[in-house]
């Protein structure tokens, strides 16, 4: 009994393990034999060009999409087998995952009910994300930035040990971007596992410690920002993290433009 209880309450124990994930839509493989680990206490950047399979992978972690092959475990369990999903995993998968006619407070109160989370926590999250003054407005009228904040409030409702954030800075103003960066770093510093996807390597340079780089659904590198940066410097004098990223993803981007 004690062993099981400990694994549920110690935040630092939870990690995500994906093994051989495959997901195909018609003939194209969105995710192709993808394995990786997300460790606690760090922000892990999930990086790849548009269409690399980041969102599909995140949906498979959440049990929303079923993999054609392979498996993913959170703290050793399938998402569907989590005892209190919202208290173990928080996710921001898209900016507007709410009914436009419902107020922000009503949206959070409904989700909270399902996992036995009280009104006080809802009020705290409204305050933390800075949307308490708009809490009784219909969420459909929210700007993209406020919608993202509501999504973050929903993700943090259950004080989860694992956070999945899909492109959280998209559409945010500079102040909002800085707020999310600090929030993610703070959450990781508390011992949580934070997986954040982006197609911008420059954004990852500010927030991520570890990096999972994918392209066309395949793992290109599981590395750290420091290592990739060091590799960039060897490519050419003054070479950067960006340089190394472009070398990694060369040939797996679907579209490329140029000035000739």
């Amino acid at each position: 009994m004690t062993g099981r209880r400990r694994s549920e309450t110690v935040v630092g124990m939870t990690m995500i393990e994906a093994r051989g994930l495959v997901k195909a839509y018609r003939s194209t493989k969105a995710v192709d034999n993808l394995s990786f680990e997300v460790r606690p206490g760090a922000v892990t950047g999930f990086l790849g060009p548009n269409g690399a399979g980041k969102s599909t992978t995140m949906r498979m972690i959440m049990g929303l999409d079923r993999p054609d092959a392979g498996q993913v475990r959170i703290g050793g369990r399938r998402y569907g087998d989590l005892r209190w999903p919202l208290r173990e995993v928080g996710a921001l998968l898209e900016a507007k995952a709410f009914h436009p006619g419902r107020t922000a407070r009503a949206h959070l109160m409904s989700l909270a009910a399902s996992n036995g989370i009280g009104r006080r926590r809802v009020e705290e999250m409204l305050a933390l994300t800075g949307i308490e003054k708009a809490a009784d407005r219909r969420a459909g009228k929210f700007s993209l930035g406020m919608s993202q904040r509501l999504g973050i409030a929903a993700a943090l409702l259950g004080d989860p040990g694992v956070l999945l954030l899909d492109e959280p800075v998209n559409g945010l103003d500079p102040e909002g971007i800085r707020w999310i960066r600090n929030l993610m770093r703070g959450l990781a510093a508390q011992g949580r596992s934070v997986l954040v996807s982006s197609h911008l390597i420059s954004e990852m340079a500010y927030t991520a410690d570890a990096l999972i780089v994918i392209g066309r659904g395949r793992l290109l590198a599981q590395t750290t920002v420091a290592q990739l940066s060091a590799h960039g410097a060897t490519l050419k004098p003054g070479g950067s993290l960006e340089e190394a990223f472009f070398q990694l993803t060369e040939g797996v981007t679907d579209y490329s433009g140029g000035l000739s």
Binding site: R59, M62, G63, L64, Y79, G80, L82, P85, L86, V89, A91, L93, E94, K96, A97, F98, H99, P100, L111, S114, N115, A154
Partner: peptide
């Protein structure tokens, strides 16, 4: 409306069954 708004993902994240 859960499917059209995307709310369904929040719902199934909270209650995967």
């Amino acid at each position: 409306t859960e499917f059209s708004s995307g709310m369904i993902r929040a719902t199934f994240a909270a209650v995967p069954r």
